[in-house]
Simulated assay, not measured.
Amino acid sequence: MEAHQEMLKTNKEGWEQAAERFFGRTALPDYGPFAPSEQQLHLFGTLAQKKVLEIGCGSGHSLQYMKNQGAEELWGLDLASKQISAAKALLDEQQAKVTLFESPMEANPGIPLNYFDTVYSIYALGWTVDLKQTLRHIYAYLKPGGTFIFSWEHPIHDRLSYNEDLSAFVFDKPYTVEGPELNAGWHQSVYIYHRKLSTYINALLEMGFKLERVIDDVVFPEQAADVSRWYSTAKAELLPATFIVKARK
């Protein structure tokens, strides 16, 4: 547990420094790089009069989307105070009533149980340092029959990188070895726990969720993303950048 707290401290410091860089990025209706959007997938269905909670709400743009879709109650939590401040400012501009918590997702900061129609997380769940504990909380937050939807970077994505002369991709990290790693995309300044896709699936099942969809389709943008970028079109031609899961309590 002490190691988890140290990783959370490091990650919070990293997000406080980088929050502005991620303002408005990777938010609904988009699920993530090279992934089909909610406009294509229709995973959420009708949101009118629904109570929704976002895990890792970032700058609040996905909560703004929920408001625009008619959600009745908006709730969110995020590790970084700058993200919570940005989300509050954005949603205040929209005159949206929202309840926000600055908290790690591994703890319940006062969120009601058996309350939400929908809990979701857009490119945030993978930051957890304790997946089972986080999923245990999410399961408890949902009403019976409630829906949990999340997206995250596909765990095979950062196993592949360009070699030094940018002439070819190489697998430079093992997919099967799990554990916390200093993340190359963040210049080794934060920890992200590498987990296999099966680990996410099995943890959901262990917590009692019923799986409805697992999606790792690739959708290419009209303009190719340069090979120097973390999410490049060349890499997406070989393997998915994003996976999406829909499950039900």
Rank of each mutant, 00 (worst) to 15 (best):
A80E: 03
Q83D: 12
A86D: 05
L90H: 12
L90F: 10
L91S: 12
E93F: 03
Q94S: 09
Q94D: 12
Q95W: 05
V98L: 08
T99L: 02
T99A: 06
T99E: 10
L100K: 05
L100R: 01
L100D: 09
L100S: 06
S103Y: 01
E106I: 02
A107W: 00
N108C: 06
N108W: 04
N108P: 09
P109Q: 13
P109H: 08
P109F: 07
P109N: 12
I111A: 11
I111H: 10
P112I: 15
L113D: 13
Y115D: 13
F116L: 04
D117M: 06
D117L: 05
V119Q: 04
S121M: 11
I122T: 15
I122R: 04
Y123H: 09
A124I: 14
A124D: 08
L125F: 15
W127N: 11
V129A: 13
D130H: 05
L131R: 04
L131Y: 03
K132I: 02
Q133S: 05
R136G: 07
R136C: 03
Y139P: 00
A140L: 11
A140P: 03
Y141L: 03
Y141W: 15
Y141I: 07
F148P: 03
S151A: 12
W152N: 07
E153G: 12
E153Q: 08
E153W: 10
H154M: 15
D158I: 08
R159H: 09
S161P: 02
Y162F: 12
N163K: 00
N163Y: 00
D165A: 15
L166C: 08
S167L: 09
F169M: 06
V170I: 13
F171M: 07
D172Y: 06
D172F: 08
D172T: 14
P174A: 09
Y175F: 12
Y175L: 13
Y175E: 13
T176A: 11
T176P: 02
V177C: 04
V177M: 12
E178F: 07
G179I: 12
P180W: 14
E181N: 06
L182N: 06
N183I: 14
G185S: 11
G185F: 12
G185M: 09
W186M: 13
W186Y: 13
W186P: 00
H187Q: 14
Q188M: 07
S189V: 13
S189E: 15
V190I: 15
Y193W: 15
H194K: 14
H194R: 13
R195M: 06
L197P: 01
T199C: 01
T199D: 05
T199F: 00
Y200G: 00
Y200W: 02
Y200D: 00
I201D: 11
L205C: 11
E206D: 14
M207Y: 02
M207N: 10
K210A: 07
K210V: 05
